[in-house]
Design a protein around this nucleic acid. Structure first.
Lengths: 201, 201
DNA sequence: GTCTATACTTCGATAGAC
DNA sequence: GTCTATCGAAGTATAGAC
């Protein structure tokens, strides 16, 4: 049978749908991202979702790609920041980004297409962030045999994500103490970033 | 209007539904946990789900409570283990537990009832795990001013969860190195647990 | 290229039979 | 106390009009 026609990638309606879907994903979760709700939020007819996207999964993937590309560009800026690690820490703490991550992780666990797309970008992120971490540690003169940039990166990433996720749930035990510990390290490595530190919690 | 009647908590059918729902949650995600699919997996009629649970959310919460209570009991056993930290690390790495965590975290972000239930248990877990961590560090004679048990706990928890989540997605950069780093610490603190270490990845 | 009318599937939930 | 018959709402997706 003939393939159903798909709307142009440059369409304004299409872009509206992607942005509406992202907002819904963050505020209500992937199960609430239905063709009807997305269309309503974009002020369009539900059937348009299926005209511009072959399936709902395709729409999810488009949302992810759009945001991931934005994040990669942001990482490029961070790389030339005077306080890259502090910026990196704050970036991983962004509530919207965390909410999206949770949704996509859940989705990815059960949809092969989405999983491979996320894995691809996750490797890109780690690669890009490694440049940031390695150059930051080098600049302060840390010995690579004592503190591995990769381990430091994975650690920082894990901490920021879990702290943000827990904070979103209202779990706070140990957060203040851990945030202060991280802040101490950041002050040591990037004295300039200290005063712009985000409040813990 | 009169409240709909709800089946007895001791019912065998009810228990079958909870277990079927958990299996579905892990294998297909919360969006796939519908009354019809749960009933089919439990070999019961779909309407029974609504007889035993006021809503689907109530069923999700019941699944969570059941598994969380099991986890708390497990933590009690770990507390008296010769290698508590190694056990804790392995526990947080359990793929089924991680999959459930991801699903419930996503659910909790958008459902107040579920969120408060998860937050409640998360605090209980941290409390119980703090006993494990503090006693383990004390036993080896670590100085609490140099290494805080709470920070060590949050760190270990964050690492194990993120590593397991990423591994589930197929993301592996830096994992071997980080796993080995953790294993090194565990060997230092719990020499007995080294040879039973789980393979990284 | 863009959008609408419509098909038909599956959902949560309740009222009522046993 | 247990289970079934059934409803109305909501879901994805396609075929066809403009």
């Amino acid at each position: 049978m003939a393939e159903r026609r798909i709307g142009a990638a440059s369409s304004a309606s299409r872009a509206k749908l992607v942005r509406a879907a992202e907002a819904l994903l963050i505020s209500e979760g992937y199960a609430a991202v239905t063709s009807r709700k997305v269309a309503a939020a974009a002020d369009l007819k539900p059937q348009l979702v299926h005209y511009y996207f072959r399936s709902m999964d395709d729409l999810y993937i488009e949302v992810f790609r759009w945001r991931a590309e934005q994040a990669l560009e942001h990482l490029d800026e961070v790389l030339s920041s005077p306080t890259p690690l502090t910026d990196l820490w704050r970036f991983s703490n962004d509530p919207n980004w965390i909410a999206l991550s949770v949704e996509f992780t859940a989705l990815a666990n059960h949809r092969k297409n989405i999983r491979s797309e996320i894995a691809r970008y996750a490797e890109l992120f780690r690669e890009r962030q490694m440049e940031v971490m390695a150059s930051a540690l080098d600049r302060v003169g840390f010995d690579r045999d004592e503190i591995s940039p990769m381990i430091a990166l994975v650690l920082m990433n894990a901490l920021s994500r879990i702290l943000a996720m827990e904070a979103g749930l209202g779990v706070e035990s140990g957060h203040a103490e851990t945030q202060e510990w991280v802040a101490g390290w950041l002050r040591k490595i990037e004295p300039g970033g200290a005063e712009q530190r985000v409040e813990p919690g």
